[in-house]
Design a protein around this nucleic acid. Structure first.
Lengths: 250, 250
DNA sequence: CGGGGTCTTGATAGCTCTCAAGGGTCGTGG
DNA sequence: CCACGACCCTTGAGAGCTATCAAGACCCCG
C-alpha cells in the first residue's frame, strides 16, 4: 500500500469542470458555482492501492472524486475486510468524517485517482450561506444511504451468483452515468475486491464469476472486468436498476 | 399487517419533549426549538406490525420516533426480506423519501409506536432559515450511514454467532442511549426479525440464539429478547461499540 | 377446541470455506 | 537473457457451516 502523492496546486477550475456538463448532474446557479470554486483548495492524485483516508483518522479532509475509481471499506481486528461501497467521479469522500468528526472507514484508490480537495472547516459556511448546497449535501448522504440499503439486501438475501450479478450491474450503471466506458465498460477490480464486497471467499468468488463468464455476461481481463450484458446481469440479480436521477455535484 | 391508526392532534409540545432532556441529545437554542415546534404538525400512533411507510410510496411523510420501536426493510420480488436498520426514539423516519422523493424501503412498527409528524414541504425552509438544523439533518444522515456500514461489515464478514451478538449488543446500546431499559433491556423482536436482519434462516437463527442463551448472555422471552451481558456480547462480536456521541433531535 | 403465530429440535441436502496446487503475467536483479 | 518473487487467476477435494424439510410444544385468542 503506497502513500498518497502530495497535493499539487489546483488545475481544473470548477467553472470548466469536465463532469458538470454531464446530464447526471444538475445545473448550478452562478453563486453556487462560485462558492464551490472558492471552497476547493486544490487537487490530489493517488495511485492504485494508495490509502486516501484511514479508519480512526481524526483530521480527515473532504474531497470529491474528479476522475478514477476508489472504494470504502472496514476491517475486523483479525483482518477480515468488507468493502462498503465504491467511489466514482462526482462522489464525495470523507463526508462522515467532516460531519461527525472521525472516520470509521478507510478509502483506497482502485485506479489512478484525482480528487478535488475542499476546506472542511468552511462546511458550516456552506450551510449558512448556501442552503441549497446544504440540502445537496444531505441529498448526497441520502443517496449513499440508498446504495448501502441495496447492498445490505444483497448481502443478506441474495445468493452468490445473484450478488455478483448485482454488484457488476450496479457498477456498470454508475460508470455509465458519469460517462465512463465508450462501448463496453471496464471496471478496475481484482477478484479479491469482488470477494470482499460480496462477503464471499476468493475461491468461491472465482467460481461464481466463472459462471457469469460462461454465460457470456462478463469477461475477466486480469485486474479488471468487462461488462458484456448489463441487462442480463440485472435480470439475474433481480435488480430493478437504481432509478438514478439528476444529482448535485459539489 | 394492520393499518396505521389515523393521526390525532398533537399532544406533546416540543418544549416539553420527554426525549430532549436525555444526555444523548444536544441542547437546542430557543429559535431552533421554536422552529421545530412549528415544524411539527401532530402525532401518529401505530400498533405492532403496522406499515408506517411502504416501498415505492411517492408522498412519504417525515417523522421522528417519539416512543417505541420500528424497523426499515426491503424485499426481493420473491418475498425474501432484509431488515436494514431499527428505529428508536429520536430517529428520523422517511428522510430519504423527503429528500430524494420516493421511498425505496418500507417501515413497520415493532411495538406500539408514537411518531411526531412534520411538514415535509417546509424542509427547504429549515435549510434556509436554520442552517444549524440543516447541518443536523445531514449529521443524522451520516449517522445512519455509519450504522449501515457496521451492518454491512457484519453481514459480509462476521460468522452467524458474531452477527447475532453484534446485533443484540448494538440494539442494547441504542436502547440504553435513549433511556429505555431500567435494569435489563428488553428488545421487542421475534426470531424471524433477527433472521431477516442477519441474513440467516429462521432455523439457524434459533440455533445460534440458543448458543448465546446457553452462555448466559441473553434470555428469550417470546416476542422479545432480554440482554443479560451486553459487554460479553460485544466481545463475542468483536465490536468496539458505537462511539455514540451527543446528537441532534429534530 | 381449533387455528395461527412463535419457538425448538433433529436429519439431510446443499452451499461455501479452507486447503492445496498450478499456471500466467509482470517487474526486478543477477 | 534468465531466474525469481509477487500478485492474480484457476481448479479439485474435503470439511464445515447453513438451508430446507419435518415434526412437535407452547401460547394466545376467537
Amino acid at each position: 500500500m503506497s502513500l498518497v502523492l502530495p497535493s499539487t496546486g489546483r488545475r481544473v477550475p470548477c467553472e470548466q469542470c469536465p463532469l458538470r456538463p454531464l446530464p447526471t448532474f444538475r445545473d448550478f446557479t452562478v453563486p453556487e458555482l462560485k462558492f464551490v470554486s472558492s471552497f476547493k483548495t486544490g487537487e490530489m492524485t493517488a495511485e492504485p492501492g494508495a490509502a486516501i483516508v484511514s479508519e480512526g483518522a481524526h483530521s480527515a479532509h473532504l474531497y470529491t472524486v474528479l476522475s478514477g475509481w476508489a472504494f470504502r471499506f472496514k476491517t475486523l481486528d483479525d483482518g477480515r475486510r468488507q468493502i462498503l461501497n465504491y467511489l466514482l467521479p462526482g462522489d464525495l469522500v470523507g463526508l462522515q468524517g467532516s460531519i461527525i468528526g472521525e472516520m470509521e472507514h478507510s478509502v483506497e484508490a482502485l485506479s489512478p485517482l484525482v480528487l478535488c480537495v475542499f476546506q472542511r472547516d468552511r462546511l458550516d459556511e456552506l450551510f449558512r450561506n448556501h442552503p441549497g448546497l446544504g440540502f445537496d449535501v444531505t441529498w448526497l448522504a441520502s443517496r449513499e444511504e440508498r446504495m448501502l440499503d441495496d447492498h445490505l439486501l444483497s448481502l443478506g438475501r441474495r445468493t452468490a451468483i445473484e450478488r455478483a450479478a448485482y454488484l457488476l450491474a450496479f457498477l456498470h450503471e454508475r460508470a455509465i452515468a458519469v460517462g465512463l466506458g465508450k462501448g463496453n465498460v471496464q471496471i478496475p477490480l481484482t477478484q479479491q475486491h469482488v470477494a470482499d464486497t460480496l462477503g464471499l471467499s476468493i475461491v468461491h468468488t472465482n467460481k461464481t464469476l466463472r459462471k457469469l463468464t460462461n454465460r457470456g455476461l462478463i469477461r475477466w481481463l486480469g485486474r479488471s472486468c468487462e461488462i458484456l450484458d448489463a441487462g442480463e446481469l440485472a435480470r439475474v440479480a433481480g435488480w430493478d436498476g437504481p432509478a438514478e436521477r439528476v444529482r448535485p455535484l459539489i
